[in-house]
Amino acid sequence: MKKISPFLLFLFIASSCENKVEQVHNAFYYWKTDSSPSGYNHEKNILTDQHIKKLYVKFFEVDYSDAMGNYPVSKTAFSLNSYCDENISTPYEVIPTVYIRNIVFQKSSENELDQLADNVNFLINKYTNEKLDSLKVSEIQIDCDWTASTRKNYFYFLKKLKPVSQKEISVTLRLYPFKYPDKMGVPPVDKVTLMCYNLINPLTDPSKNSILDLKELQSYLVPGKKYPLHLDVALPVYSWMQVYQNNKFTGILYDVNTIKPYLKKIKPLWYEVRKDTVIDYKTYLRVGDKVKYEEITADKIYQAIALIKKNVKLDKEITVTLFHLDENQLENYTDEEINHFYSNFTQ
């Protein structure tokens, strides 16, 4: 048997350790615009039990109309008092997150983007004072599905936001711009969060789980290629159901556990409603309606983590963020499973 030289052995060991994550900051996204007080205690317990370091809280979204121009919508229901004990300082960092629709950058001039940067910063400061008791904020995250055609305007906005806010700026990064930075550009920010979910348009492929399809995920990962910016990771811990009535898509339901008893499986991912029922006094399901149930199990998340560890070059210290903090969705996982969604990155 041919011997391996000590030098080659050293290189092999060094390269195998290069991608080793040594520390993970546990985080959640908070994406709710309304919230029931009954859920606070359970969600508080999750934050405590999972040693959460950060909460990325969606403060609002920015949309566009010809009549109004750019305007904020979907304001957060988050309140610091709901998740912290009285007279005790928050044990986690809160990062204001703003989702901006791509149409904003299709329609806006540079002058309007200058104003948008000022307005976003103003609203973040306003909400910080009102909902976070003037908590010190050091980072802002911008969430946008930018395209090659809107890249110039989006990057211009990000460059303007940095000096206006005087804060660290991070952005979400979908898998397509992650794989093709030459085509899509690298955002002019401090760091990015790789969004490892919502890989497929929910309505285009009836045979695949649009939230997380492992083959689709792997197709975007390039072994050995390091992204030019610090890379954090976001994973899904939610499931949903797409409702089809008379073979036409009518909406998405998130309270999947309530609906399950009324369904009969007809093929992979697909179910049929077997009893007329009303969900939350708003959605009426009739016998024969079709439902596509896209479920995210703990095992699927473990497999996604293994793919990411194998194919993505990560720094020694990263933040792993789960989407999102919601008691109804998180009851589908044990405390131990949630813990492993973080700890598996260091194993």
Rank of each mutant, 00 (worst) to 15 (best):
P163T: 10
I103C: 00
P96G: 09
T90F: 00
L161C: 05
E93Y: 04
T193H: 06
K126H: 13
T97A: 13
Y83C: 10
L158R: 10
L194Y: 02
N153I: 04
L132E: 08
S165P: 09
K152E: 14
E93M: 07
S165N: 09
S165W: 02
R174A: 11
L80F: 03
P72S: 10
P91E: 02
T193V: 15
V104N: 04
P177F: 02
T97V: 02
D133N: 15
T76L: 08
R174H: 10
P188Y: 05
S79E: 15
E112R: 11
D145F: 05
V94H: 05
S170H: 06
S138F: 01
D85L: 09
V94A: 05
S79Y: 07
K152Q: 13
I140Y: 14
L80G: 06
S82H: 15
K162P: 08
K126T: 12
F155C: 11
T193A: 06
L132M: 11
K131V: 00
Y176A: 13
L80P: 12
F105A: 09
Q141G: 00
I169Y: 02
I124L: 09
L194P: 14
V164I: 13
P177Y: 03
F178P: 04
L132T: 13
N119R: 13
V171I: 11
N125P: 12
Y156F: 14
C144E: 05
D118E: 14
S134W: 01
V98R: 00
E130R: 13
V120Q: 07
V186W: 01
Q115F: 01
V120E: 08
Y71K: 05
K179H: 08
T150V: 08
N121Q: 08
Y71D: 03
F155M: 12
V189G: 04
K75R: 14
E112W: 00
F122V: 00
P177E: 05
F157G: 12
L123D: 13
S79M: 08
Q106R: 14
N70I: 07
E86L: 11
L173R: 11
D190R: 02
K136E: 14
Y180L: 13
K167Y: 04
F157D: 12
E130L: 13
N70Y: 00
S149M: 06
V104H: 00
V98I: 15
F178L: 10
F122H: 15
S138G: 07
N121E: 10
P72N: 02
P177T: 06
I140W: 00
C144V: 15
N121G: 03
L158A: 10
K131F: 07
K191M: 05
K183G: 01
C84Y: 01
V186H: 05
E93V: 11
S108Q: 09
Y176W: 06
Y92R: 10
W146V: 11
S138I: 07
K191C: 07
V137K: 10
D182V: 01
R101W: 05
P163K: 08
K183C: 00
A77C: 14
F122M: 11
S134G: 12
E93G: 09
L175D: 10
F178R: 02
D182E: 14
K131P: 01
M195T: 13
